[in-house]
């Protein structure tokens, strides 16, 4: 085999990080394609049958679900890949660095896709003279210009990264401890709370969750974004600390 296809020791952690992000997007490409088609086709179909004017962004639902999806991808990929990577002779530090690259690259690509989807939808709705707006309880956020679309869409990469970091931490804790999923209790409210603050969205869910995640509702967007960056760094640091001391589990018979 050509020797240059094997990864070089000093840089393999970076190659793996970028490689996993790329492969993950390739793996889910048909999922993305189906979601894009659904988000673009559903509004005209609804309009055709109900004759009511379309006033909300269908793409918003797809883009928002990408946040939960990012958390799930981070958690499950980490949980599955950790023992296999170590069995292939990777150190925990190298693996943590790889995940540290995977997260931002994943979030950037998915964020770019979300933003492109909003722009495409803006042009698409324009053809029908519909309003592109984001539902915010009793008041909608109108995306009445490309500038407004950009302002709204540009928050997604950061949100995706926040959810990714939260999911990765939960995945690491689940692998490390049998009751590791309990870390969901502090992580989920923090993540949702900051995301609600950044996107000015109304908290949803049961009353206690709405109360908890609504606590940061008064924060301005720049403050929420800065807090997000700090929390992302904290989640990544805690996740890395957990991984560095995690043994590879014994195989079950």
């Amino acid at each position: 085999m050509p020797a240059d296809t094997n990864l070089k020791l000093p840089t393999r952690r970076y190659s793996i990080g970028f490689g996993v992000a790329w492969e993950a997007h390739k793996y889910f490409k048909w999922w993305f394609a189906v979601i894009i088609v659904l988000a673009m086709v559903t509004p005209p179909a609804v309009f055709q049958f109900s004759s009511t004017e379309i006033e909300v962004s269908a793409w918003e639902f797809a883009a928002y679900s990408g946040k939960i999806f990012s958390a799930i991808v981070a958690g499950t990929f980490l949980y599955t890949m950790f023992p296999n990577a170590l069995a292939q002779g990777l150190t925990r530090r190298e693996f943590a660095t790889s995940m540290g690259l995977f997260g931002p690259v994943w979030s950037l690509i998915l964020g770019a896709l979300a933003l492109a989807g909003f722009i495409l939808e803006h042009l698409w709705y324009g053809l029908f003279d519909w309003n592109q707006a984001i539902q915010r309880g009793d008041r909608d956020l109108a995306l009445d210009s490309l500038g407004a679309v950009l302002t709204h869409g540009v928050t997604y990469p950061l949100s995706y990264l926040l959810f990714f970091a939260g999911g990765a931490l939960i995945g690491a804790a689940c692998y490390r401890w049998d009751g590791g999923w309990l870390i969901l209790v502090p992580v989920a409210p923090v993540v949702f709370s900051l995301d609600f603050a950044l996107t000015r969205a109304d908290p949803w869910g049961p009353g206690w969750f709405r109360w908890l995640t609504g606590l940061s509702g008064d924060a301005s967007s720049p403050v929420a974004a800065a807090a997000m960056v700090v929390v992302i760094a904290a989640l990544a640091w805690i996740g890395r600390a957990i991984l560095l001391e995690t043994p590879v589990r014994a195989k079950k018979a």
Partner: peptide, 27 residues
């Protein structure tokens, strides 16, 4: 280890190629 450490959803060839993480793996 018995049964190896693989992602069960991978194909055999992909699992082998993942060995190239090692500097000296001979595909």
């Amino acid at each position: 280890r018995e049964g190896g450490d693989f992602d069960d959803t991978d194909k055999v060839e992909a699992a082998m190629k993942s060995g190239e993480i090692r500097p000296d793996f001979d595909l």
